[in-house]
Each structure stands twice: as C-alpha cells, then as structure tokens.
Nucleic acid binder design. Structure first.
Ligand code: SF4
Ligand code: SF4
Lengths: 140, 140
DNA sequence: CTAAAACAGGATAAATACAATCTAATTACT
DNA sequence: AGTAATTAGATTGTATTTATCCTGTTTTAG
C-alpha cells in the first residue's frame, strides 16, 4: 500500500521543473543532482513523463527537459497516474479484472469510495501552488 | 499502490465470521473453502488476526475461530491496519523515516491528506453493516 | 490414555514486482 | 565531424509478496 519511489522521483522532478521560468530547459542530470535522485533511473522516469506528454525533451547540446504543459494543469494525481498507470488499490477496481461475487460484494464499493477520496485529495492542488510560484497562493 | 492479497483474505475472513451467529466457531478450513482462499496461507493470516485480538481461536476437535469482538466494532481500516501494519502511502508518512526537506515539503502534506481521506472511508462502515446482519442497515 | 482434529509457529521456497544499472543508439547543436 | 544530451531495450540486483512444509501444542472424542 505504498506509492513507488519512481512516483516520488517523478513528483520531485515536476516540482523542480515547475519552479523554473516558463519554457526554460534543464538537464535531467541537474535535476538528479538537485533532488538527489539516482541519475540513470531518473532518465527512465523522465522518458515516461515525456511519452505521457507532461514534459518535453530536447536532445543534444543545450538540450534538456521542460514542462510540456503549464504547472497549473498538473496535479500529483496526474503524475502518479502516469508513472504507475491507472490507480487501483485492489485488483477488482482495475479494468478487466473479474471477481466471481463482484456484483454482490459490498466491500468493493467501500474500497472504491476510499480510492476516489484519496485521488480527489491528490488532485486538489496543482504544481503551480506546490512550487510556490503562483502569485496569489490561493488560500486553501 | 495496492492492498496485499492477504488484506483481502483477511477482510473476507472477517466478513465470513461476521455473518455467523455470535459466539459460534467455524474452522478456518471451512472459511478457505467457502471463500476460495489458499488454506495454508489463510492459516497464517488468521494467526495475525488472532494475535491482534480480532479473532479468537480454539484448538482441537470442535475447535475453530470466531470473532473476538463484535462486528460493529471492526472496520476495513482496522483489518488492513492489522495485516499490513500502519498504513503509509509514502515512506515519509511512516514513523521513524527522516527526509531532508521534510519540514519545507508541501507534497507531504497533500499525501498525508490523501491518506487520511482514504482511511476515513475505509473506517466509515463496520462489518455488521457489511455482512448485512444488522437490522436497521443504517441509511448512509 | 490414546488418537485424531484443529490451530501455532518457524523455516523455506517460489513468484512478482521494484529499483537500479548497463550498453548502444539517436538526435541536435556547434 | 565532434560533443553533449536524450532514447531504448536488456539486464541485473533486491525486496516484497505469496505460498507451502514440517513439527509442535492443545483439545476432545472414544
Ligand atoms: S470479493 Fe469484493 S472486494 Fe474482494 S475482489 Fe471480489 S469484488 Fe473486490
Ligand atoms: S520530498 Fe516531501 S513527499 Fe518526498 S519524502 Fe521528502 S517529505 Fe515526503
């Protein structure tokens, strides 16, 4: 019942990128140093974020990575969802899983509600707020 | 980001026990058959539940297991907590873990709120309601 | 008093999943 | 060309989860 480290790494990466001036590239190596993340493994993580369209990459000299969308449009729920795939705290909440007594099971309903409650919280605040680079710092 | 199977097994076991007349013993083997759970593994799970004081066991002929407390007093959150230990969806939410920038980290607060929201839902309904053996079936 | 029934507990094995690394390619700028 | 950066897949290492085995202890039927 825990997020993977890769999710944390991804969150910290997006956080780092969110605090940069819009459009600026930063090398993933720099992120790994600043956030103290294993470099090689972070590269993998960046790839996932890139394929999902959250970050943009540029190769070669002067290359690096940057956000592909505005920090305001990304939440922790998004990042975790991209890295770990669609969240399902129990197999029966995932697509394509068939449990015999699923129809009459009342446990499943509770698990589902619990999951939704968690995802709602993870999706409540966006990375503009998290990185602290929004002016108003919308009072919660 | 998933509950262990053992948690499911434990939930189904408590559910089975909750639907029995109060005080009646049932053999763990019967539970494993009725719920289609691996017998040997379930024994281990029962031990955990017993040590935590949720179920009571009796050895020998005519032995078996039964709830040690009323179904009304047990929630899914309790069962999962017993089987998996104190829930922490990220290492930094567990006791004894030290993250360098924990004090200034705003991600942690969100993760914590998400976890609490999930646990609140898991603790909302008790096993009397889940097993459907309470009269009023308290309208939610 | 003995044998069978049922849980207790530790050790171990098998299977997954997670985390990290390695090597080689590709791209792009200078 | 040459260098700096990401891309991609393969591979290794580690931890966790899941499951089984074997031996012991308790209880009761006979
Ligand atoms: S028994 Fe209920 S909670 Fe468990 S897997 Fe089946 S549907 Fe889901
Ligand atoms: S960076 Fe924040 S969320 Fe991540 S482990 Fe540290 S305190 Fe927790």
């Amino acid at each position: 019942m825990q997020l993977t480290r890769q999710s944390e790494y991804a969150i910290r990466t997006i956080l780092e990128l969110s605090s940069l001036p819009e459009g600026e590239f930063i090398q993933s190596r720099t992120v790994s140093v600043r956030q103290e993340l294993p470099e090689r493994f972070l590269n993998k993580t960046v790839q996932i974020l890139a394929r999902a369209g959250l970050v943009e990459t540029r190769r070669g000299m002067q290359g690096g990575i940057r956000l592909a969308v505005k920090p305001e449009a990304i939440t922790i729920a998004d990042v975790v969802g991209v890295v770990e795939g669609k969240i399902a705290i129990n197999p029966c909440l995932a697509d394509g899983y068939h449990c015999a007594n699923r129809s009459e099971c009342r446990v499943r309903g509770i698990l589902n509600r619990a999951q939704e409650a968690m995802l709602a919280e993870l999706g409540r605040e966006n990375f503009a707020g998290l990185a602290g680079n929004d002016i108003a710092e919308e009072a919660v």
